[in-house]
Design a binder for these strands. Structure first.
Lengths: 330, 330
DNA sequence: TTGTAAGCGTTATCAA
DNA sequence: TTGATAACGCTTACAA
C-alpha cells in the first residue's frame, strides 16, 4: 500500500506536506503541490480514509436506512438523497432494514461504529434510535416520525390525503368501502386508516363495518393480494378498496384482475401509487407521495446537522398530490 | 468516545484482552469475557471499525455499483446480494453510477480508499476497472462482462432470449417489427439487438429495415416513449415492437396507450419485463431476467474471492424465462 | 510555508 | 491464557 510517506519521499517533501495537499487547511506552495500530485500519480497513491477517519473522527458517508430497498417509493427517495449528498461531498450507503427492528438495530450499530457522518432513516414503532442518538450521530427521519424522540423528520400529511382520496371514491359513486392498510408498527398505516375512517364516517354517519378493515404487511404484494381476496369474498363485499401503500395497491389490483372485477367495476385508491404505474386507469384514484422531495429535504436537513446546527428538532410536513381519472372507460 | 482502554480499566483486565473478546482469535477465560461484556455494556462501548480496519487492512463492506438504483431489475438483484452478504457477515453499500463513467470512477476511488472487502459492479463499455483491479480489490461483474478484463462475471444469454422472444412475435402473426434498444456503450443492448436481428433475418430472409431500429437510454422511461412514438409515426410503421429493457418497455407501453394502439393491436416484447408488471397482457411477450439469481451467484463468487480464491476469471451465464400470454383478449 | 512528532483506537507480536 | 508494546496511515500542534 502506497502511503503519504512514500509520496513524500518521491516528491522530496515531508509527509505533512503531502497530507496538506489532500484536503488540508494549511496552504502549500504551488510547485510543491505539483510535485506531490505527480509523485502520487506515479505511485498510484490513494489516501486511506480509515486512517483519516480514525484521526479526525468523521467520515463523508451518509447511511440511509429504509424498510424496503425495492419499493419505488424509497428508491426514488434514495436517488434524491444521493443527489443532494453527492453535491455536498458525501457518499450514500443504503441499508435495507426490512421493517425488522433487529436488522435495523444491527445497521445502526454498524453505522455508528463506522463513524458515519449522519443517518437518514424510515423508522418503525419499535425502532431504538436512542442508542445512536446518544452517541451524537446526526439523524433525520423520513416518511415517519421518530418514536419517543426529538429528531428532525420529513413526513407527509397522510390523514388529510387519505380522507380526500376516500371522498373521491364516494363521489365516484362507490358506497361500501374496504380498507387494506399496513401493520400497527408502521405509523403511516395507522394514519391512513384514520383518514379513511374519517371519510367513511363523514359520508355514512356511522363507523365502518369492522370486517371491511384489514391489515397486511407493507413489504410484500402477496399480502395485499390475499387481503383483497378476503375482502371480496365477504358475503357483503365492498365495491371499492382503499389500499394503504403502493405494494398493497399492486396486490389488490392483481386480486381484482384474477376475479375479473378490475376498476372501475370495483373502485380503488392506490395510496402512494402502484409502483411505476403505466397509465391512468378509470376507477383508480392514485395519490402521489413526494418521494424525491422528501429525499432532498431530508438530505439538506441532515447536512445542516452535520455542519453543527443545534436547533430543536424540526418536522417538515409535505403535501400529497392526487389523480382521479374518473370512472368512465375511455 | 469509549475505547477498549476504558472497558479494560472497568473490567480489570488489559486492553488486549478486551480486543480479544471482540472477534479475537485467541481464547479468553469465560469469567473474563463476562466481566468485559458487562463493562462494555455499562459504558456503551462500540468497537471503532476505522481503527480496526486501519490495523487489519480489511473491512466487512461490499460495495455494489449499479447504473440505476431505481430500476427494479437492479433492486431485486441488490436484495439478493444483501441476503447472501449478510449471512456471511458483510454489509452492502449501494452506489448509483447512473451509467456515467465519471461517477463510477469516483465511486471506485471511494470504495478502494475505504478498503471495501469487495465490489460487485454492472460496468459499461467505458468503465475503467483497471485501477481498482490493480489494487487488488476483489470484483465481480453482473449483467455485463468486464471490458478488457479478466474478472468474474454473472450474465444472462441475451442473444438467445432476444431471438426466442422475437420469434414469438412472428408466431403471433406480427410481421413488421421495430426494435428499441439501449446505447452502444451498454453490452446488453447490443446483444439484444443482435438477437432480434437474427430472428428477423430468419423470418424475412433479409436484413431489417434500418429505420425500424432505434437506440434510447436505458435509464429513463421517456426516452423509450419518444422512440416508440417515432417508430409508430413512420409512413410504414411496425406492427410490433421489441423493447430492449424494462424501462424502454414501460415507455413503449405508455406511447401505445397514448396512441390507442395497446397490445395486442401492436405487439410488444418487454425484455426484462415492465417493472412490477401487474398481470399478463395479451400481445405482450415478457422475458424475465433472473435478477435475484444473478445477485446471489455474484455475491457467492465475490465472497469466494474475498476469502482468497485465486483461480482464473469465471463467467456464469444464466438462462432467461419467458411468458407469452397469446394474443387473445381474455 | 514547512517539518517533526505525537497521537487516533485497534490488533499483532512477543514474553511472561 | 494474559499483558505490554509496537505498529497501521493519517492529521495537527508546535516549532522552525
Amino acid at each position: 500500500m502506497v502511503t503519504i510517506y512514500d509520496v513524500a519521499k518521491r516528491a522530496g517533501v515531508s509527509p505533512a506536506t503531502v497530507s496538506r495537499v489532500y484536503g488540508g487547511q494549511t496552504p502549500v506552495t504551488p510547485d510543491r503541490v505539483q510535485a506531490v500530485r505527480a509523485a502520487a500519480e506515479e505511485l498510484g497513491f490513494v489516501p486511506n480514509r480509515n486512517a483519516r477517519r480514525l484521526r479526525t473522527n468523521s467520515s463523508e458517508i451518509i447511511a440511509m436506512m429504509v424498510p424496503d430497498v425495492s419499493n419505488s417509493f424509497f428508491t426514488h427517495m434514495t436517488r434524491a438523497v444521493e443527489d443532494v449528498a453527492r453535491a455536498a461531498g458525501f457518499s450514500v450507503m443504503l441499508c435495507n432494514t426490512d421493517e425488522d427492528p433487529e436488522r435495523e438495530q444491527e445497521y445502526l450499530r454498524v453505522a455508528t461504529s463506522e463513524q458515519v457522518a449522519g443517518i437518514i432513516i424510515a423508522p418503525n414503532a419499535n425502532s431504538e434510535l436512542d442508542w445512536a442518538v446518544e452517541r451524537g450521530v446526526p439523524m433525520v427521519c423520513v416518511d415517519r416520525h421518530a418514536p419517543h424522540h426529538e429528531i428532525d423528520a420529513v413526513v407527509v400529511d397522510n390523514i388529510t390525503a387519505a380522507t380526500a382520496a376516500t371522498h373521491l371514491l364516494f363521489e365516484a359513486g362507490y358506497t361500501r368501502l374496504g380498507c387494506i392498510t399496513g401493520p400497527e408498527t408502521v405509523e403511516t398505516s395507522t394514519a391512513r386508516l384514520e383518514g379513511w375512517m374519517k371519510a367513511v364516517r363523514d359520508h355514512t354517519g356511522t363507523d365502518p363495518d369492522p370486517e371491511l378493515v384489514l391489515r397486511a404487511r407493507y413489504v410484500d404484494d402477496r399480502d395485499g393480494e390475499r387481503a383483497a381476496q378476503q375482502l371480496l369474498s365477504l358475503d357483503n363485499p365492498p365495491d371499492a378498496i382503499f389500499a394503504g401503500n403502493n405494494r398493497l395497491a399492486t396486490g389488490t389490483l392483481r386480486a381484482l384482475y384474477r376475479l375479473d372485477t378490475m376498476p372501475p367495476k370495483v373502485g380503488l385508491v392506490a395510496f402512494g401509487g402502484p409502483p411505476n404505474s403505466l397509465f391512468a386507469w378509470p376507477g383508480v384514484i392514485v395519490t402521489y407521495l413526494p418521494d424525491s422531495l422528501i429525499g432532498t429535504t431530508a438530505a439538506a436537513m441532515l447536512i445542516e446537522r452535520i455542519n453543527g446546527l443545534e436547533s430543536d428538532a424540526r418536522t417538515v410536513t409535505l403535501p400529497i398530490a392526487m389523480e382521479d381519472p374518473g370512472t368512465d372507460v375511455s
